[in-house]
Structure formats: structure tokens, C-alpha cells
């Protein structure tokens, strides 16, 4: 896992038990369905390659602790992230309130980080409409407002999971391509500044 060269850092944000880990596991498991899965001892960090056109993008997916007690530290996690998948539970309206907190944080601290909203546990809602506590259109409006993409996924059935990560990889590939064709020298310098002095200097 550590042997992979990671191109893009993707952070998973979201309240406890909204299913961040399941989402990541679904994504990884699906790709590994044929092969063995035993060498993964934890789902906290996963590096996975995604095919984008004729290129391969490696996503390094960082799981984060969602508990409110670690809220103050979340900033350390998403430093340098290229994408953030902010998860909420479709059956839990309180989880969506927390989404707004992270989105605000991300907009303040990591302006280059693309935001993806992800409503989880879609299978529960599909089975029983009354379970839905977060309205799709409300979230879509919010997503438009913050220029984010919205996905409703189910880790149980796997619906929309691959699409989400595929989109993340494609967007990263596009932006990375733009930078490279743009100004090469500046890119390296920027990378340096972003990378070096960021950690633990708060």
C-alpha cells in the first residue's frame, strides 16, 4: 500500500457512523472482489488506482475521525488535500448540519480542494421513503451554492460509489493537466509552499 505513489490526496469527512469507512471499503472491495483482501488491516488509509481515459490516477484516501471532540484537529487532516468527500447520512438530519461546518472550514482553509457531497445509506431510503430525513433538492441547492458535486450512494448495494470516485479522479486529472500545460515552474514552487510548512504550524 505504501509502495504506491499517490497522486491525489482525498479526505473523507463526516460525522461518526455516517458510513465513511464503509464507503471506502465498498470502493476498494469492489475492485478487489476477485482477489484476496487480507492484507488490509485497516480502512483508514487506502491508495487505489483509477483509470481515467488512458491515464492512471492514484487516489490516496484518508479517513478521518468524525467525532466532535476531534473537530479542532480536522484542519490538520485536510491540508494539501485535492478533494474532500463530505459525507452525511440520508436518514439523519443532524449529520447534514455537520456537513455545513466542514464545507465552511474547507472553503476557508483549502480553497484548492474540490468538495464532493455524499449522502450515504441510499438503500435505506429507497426501501422506505419515510426514512429520508435530508431532502435531495435542498442539498442540491446547497451544492450549487458552494460549487460542489452531489452524490447519493449506497455502500450496501454499491450504487453510485464508483461513479463518485471516478468523478474525483477525473476532476483531479483535468486540473492537474491544466496546471502542467500552464506554467511548469510555478507549479513546482506552489507545491513546495503548500507542502512544506503546512503541518503542525498552527
Amino acid at each position: 500500500m505504501s509502495g504506491h505513489r499517490v497522486d491525489a490526496k482525498v479526505v473523507m469527512l463526516g460525522k461518526e457512523s455516517v458510513g465513511k469507512t464503509s464507503l471506502v471499503e465498498r470502493f476498494v472491495h469492489h475492485r478487489f472482489l476477485v482477489g484476496p483482501y487480507q492484507n488490509t488491516i485497516g480502512a483508514a488509509f487506502v491508495a487505489r488506482q483509477v483509470q481515467v481515459g488512458d491515464k492512471v490516477v492514484t487516489l490516496g484516501i484518508w479517513d478521518t475521525a468524525g467525532s466532535e471532540r476531534y473537530e479542532a484537529m480536522s484542519r490538520i487532516y485536510y491540508r494539501g488535500a485535492k478533494a474532500a468527500i463530505v459525507c452525511y447520512d440520508l436518514t439523519d438530519s443532524s449529520s447534514f448540519l455537520r456537513v455545513k461546518f466542514w464545507v465552511k472550514e474547507l472553503q476557508n482553509c483549502e480553497e484548492h480542494c474540490k468538495i464532493y457531497l455524499c449522502g450515504t445509506k441510499n438503500d435505506l431510503v429507497e426501501n422506505d421513503r419515510s426514512m429520508r430525513q435530508v431532502d435531495y433538492h435542498d442539498v442540491q441547492d446547497f451544492a450549487d451554492e458552494i460549487k460542489a458535486q452531489l452524490f447519493e450512494t449506497s455502500s450496501k448495494t454499491g450504487s453510485n460509489v464508483d461513479e463518485l470516485f471516478q468523478k474525483v479522479a477525473e476532476d483531479f486529472n483535468n486540473t492537474a493537466f491544466q496546471i502542467i500545460t500552464g506554467e511548469k515552474g510555478v507549479d513546482l514552487g506552489q507545491k513546495k509552499n503548500d507542502y512544506f510548512y503546512s503541518c503542525c504550524h498552527h
Partner: peptide, 13 residues
Amino acid sequence: MTGEDGYYFTNLC
């Protein structure tokens, strides 16, 4: 900043 080592280091921070 990337890879597994970076993840664990960030967690330590």
C-alpha cells in the same frame, strides 16, 4: 504529504 507514512504522521500530529 501523500502515502501511508504521511497519513499516520498526520494522525500523530
